[in-house]
Design a protein around this nucleic acid. Structure first.
Length: 496
DNA sequence: GGACGGTGAAACTTCAGGTTGCCTC
DNA sequence: GAAGTTTCACCGTCC
């Protein structure tokens, strides 16, 4: 076997390998198993490098990605000044593309990243360094699938520029080295599993097949699934039938499907059709409908809906309740108890932990709609900007679905309330700012600025002095805002 | 005596990512 | 399972 030695100039092998790559004037991707580790490793490499003048601009872009930078932004910015970066789902969208683009054009030399970068994105590098081949899963720390290894190693070598690439897996002991060689280098990738077998996906499929009129009789449903990869893999058609029957039963009980008298032909109900169009798990839809029915006859606030959406499968992974917070959370829970739209599971019930997590997630959303910063949420809930954005998008979608359910259930009042809550979550603002958000180019930061300068609604915008508005928002945005309220006269532009 | 600070061992936490919907209070 | 963080007991110092 051909071997190659790299001098261990630094205590950590990854850092030595990184510098070896830099000396060759090549690029590397370093795969690690946690976000924290990606950040730490990048900093570890960066701290031995001098600032590069050419990189100050992108470092600044990364830092100013949010109106007030989080610690994460600062750390990324520090690394970028030295041509090093980290990349994971916690970055803002802008920061992610900034890192990707500047790696592609060669400005950034090394990215320390979580497995995200191995999938979907086309981001090859001369060298791939796989630091962690173990990852935390349900059963503690476990070896990653061979498929994941191949996916990561496959990033090595840029077809246009390099004649070859290097994929390096790091072993900590001799026996580990042996293991890695046997399992990954020589090993066979595992069989591909059909995603259809997951119940939520299956529920959505069955409902949408019927709702779109693709199938309607029980016979057609079976013959459709018989032709899928799932059935091919499953082989056991009795068990398959059992699963499909269970789903048909659930969908009927939830009133998304209606069967004829012989229970042979199924049709989607109006609400079932809408659920299928909205692409949400029917179970979630059923849960939302139940919550709304309760909400119709009790006191509700924004928090009621924040908690409702935080209790869905879609919102997972939830913000975790720490052990020492439990008492505090329970105190908060007592305050909010009457606003919740579902029953609290008994303490020590298996579901209780999950319930506390969903409650904490709802609290996180509450802080967000109370206009707390991304940094605040990172510090207090350990939710990074990128993860927050994913949660916001999901919340937006679920609340839209809830609005639609309200229409079908004839709950106009609830629909208005949810709509307000939805806007507040989308923009992260208190209710008082909602009128200003109708303006283009006005988000949470500018709206708050305007509001605290006594511009509280569109009428105030009309009345506002253009010069004062320009000082607040900048000239072009001030002009655009004025234009949006129908004031575009030459007069407003005077004095510039 | 007690407030304070430093130290280290023990206990406790946490740990990847995510398709693509809709329409505007 | 491992790295990072918090907690806590313990000890020495200073006032």
């Amino acid at each position: 076997m051909q071997t190659k030695k790299v001098s261990a100039s630094y205590p950590e092998p990854v850092v030595s390998l990184a510098f070896d790559t830099l000396q060759m004037n090549k690029q590397a991707l370093v795969f690690v198993n946690t976000k924290r580790s990606a950040e730490r490793t990048a900093e570890e490499i960066a701290k031995n490098i001098k600032d590069n003048e050419d990189l100050l601009k992108i470092a600044l872009t990364a830092k100013t990605s949010l109106s007030n930078p989080t610690k994460q932004c600062e750390r990324l910015s520090y690394c970028l000044r030295k041509g090093i970066a980290f990349h994971h789902a916690g970055l803002t969208q802008g920061q992610k593309t900034l890192v990707e683009d500047n790696f592609r054009n060669g400005t950034i030399k090394i990215i320390c990243c979580t497995p995200t970068l191995a999938y979907g994105l086309d981001l090859p590098a001369f060298r791939v360094i796989i630091k962690d081949l173990k990852r935390f899963g349900r059963r503690g720390l476990a070896w990653i699938p061979v498929l994941d290894y191949l996916q990561q190693a496959g990033r090595a070598g840029r077809p246009k520029y390099d004649s070859h690439g290097e994929a390096i897996a790091i072993a900590n002991t001799d026996s580990e080295k042996e293991n890695i060689y046997e399992k990954y280098v020589k090993g066979e990738p595992e069989e591909i599993q059909s995603k259809l077998a997951v119940e939520p996906a299956l529920r959505m499929y069955v409902l949408s097949l019927i709702a779109t009129g693709m199938v309607s009789s029980r016979k057609e449903i079976y013959s459709f699934f018989d032709r899928t990869f799932w059935a091919h893999q499953y082989q056991d058609s009795d068990r398959l039938a059992e699963v499909i029957e269970k789903i048909l039963l659930m969908l009927s009980e939830w009133e998304f499907l209606r069967a004829d008298e012989e229970e042979e032909v199924f049709n989607a109900t109006p609400i079932g059709r809408r659920v299928s169009e909205l692409c949400i798990d029917p179970y979630t839809a059923y849960f939302i409908v139940e919550c709304l029915r309760r909400a119709a006859s009790k006191k509700i606030e924004v928090f009621s809906f924040l908690h409702m959406i935080s209790s869905t499968l879609e919102m997972r992974p939830l913000v975790k309740a720490k052990t020492r917070e439990i008492e505090l959370l329970q105190q908060e829970l007592a305050k909010y108890h009457e606003l919740l739209l579902m029953d609290e599971p008994p303490m020590y019930d298996a579901e209780y932990d999950y319930f506390l997590d969903s409650f904490k997630t709802a609290l996180m959303f509450r802080e967000w709609v109370d206009e707390n910063s991304e940094e605040y949420l990172l510090e207090n809930f350990n939710v990074r900007p990128g993860e927050l954005q994913v949660k916001i998008d999901m919340a937006d979608w679920l609340m839209y679905a809830a609005q639609e359910m309200c229409t079908l259930l004839h709950f106009p009042y609830l629909k208005r309330e949810i709509s307000k809550a939805r806007f507040r979550v989308k923009y992260g603002v208190k209710e008082e700012l909602l009128p200003l958000l109708r303006l283009k180019h006005i988000g949470r930061v500018r709206a708050r600025k305007m509001y605290s300068n006594r511009i509280k609604d569109l009428g105030d915008v009309k009345k506002a002095d253009i010069i004062m508005l320009s000082q607040l928002l900048g000239r072009s945005i001030a002009a655009s805002v004025k234009k949006q309220v129908g004031q575009e006269s030459e007069k407003t532009l005077e004095g510039f």
